[in-house]
Design a protein around this nucleic acid. Structure first.
Lengths: 115, 115
DNA sequence: CCCATAGTTTAGTTTTAACTATATTAATGT
DNA sequence: ACATTAATATAGTTAAAACTAAACTATGGG
């Protein structure tokens, strides 16, 4: 029912990883640059976060000489958004209510038939 | 920047809690009924999950005699959805590209002025 | 008041996440 | 080949999450 959102939720749950994802959202950025942007985390920790994000499919890396450029896979956030909409938002629920209301406006018989 | 999504992410990250939230999504349901619907979790654990969901504002409880009826606060999922859209989806990004494209169509000068 | 039912809370344990420090791999320049 | 830079991987530690079992609280019926 919720096929692949678990790793996405796990990845985005961590504020540090959200920050890292933001850092590579617009333009590709090297792991080292990310590390320098986050003063109080070791390089190793950053690399581990990047691995989680990569495993979740939220970022991708391209080799560029001896550094690795990370970029957010922007579309990868879509499924989570979609899941949120489908499963949890009240949009569908309201749609249903609206439909029933419409049906009842067309008269009791029509409303009963539509159920 | 992301004001209150942390507890929501923490709460929804756990599959068990997602299931519990689903159980009280449509109609109010007692804690005991939730427990009975989740065979391999103790009552205590269910109660703890409910507390997390309650603290996150995702469910509310009404007393009904000696039982407590839980119901999902459907609208509470909105902020998370909104945050996802604003922060992470590529919609804004595409909107920006689209605007620049439009500007460039109106001629180089207009495009330059719009920047 | 006493007992049963419905839930919550607490204490303690196990599992998992996040981190540091260190070792290791891979690419480049000399 | 060797040293340097950029990054990943691993081992071990600490902190947080999830769970169980048992104690506790509150409500309603006799």
């Amino acid at each position: 029912m919720s096929p692949t959102i678990q790793p996405h939720l796990d990845a985005l749950r961590n504020p540090r990883r959200r920050e890292i994802l933001r850092l590579c959202w617009r333009d590709p950025i090297s792991a080292g640059a990310i590390h320098r942007a986050l003063p109080d985390v070791t390089f190793g920790a950053v690399s581990q976060h990047l691995r989680v994000l990569r495993d979740a499919g939220l970022v991708a890396a391209d080799r560029n000489g001896r550094q690795r450029l990370y970029r957010a896979r922007r579309g990868a956030v879509g499924p989570l958004r979609h899941w949120l909409e489908r499963s949890w938002d009240d949009a569908l629920y309201r749609l249903k209510l609206h439909a029933e209301l419409e049906a009842s406006r067309r008269g009791p018989l029509a409303a009963a038939a539509s159920r």
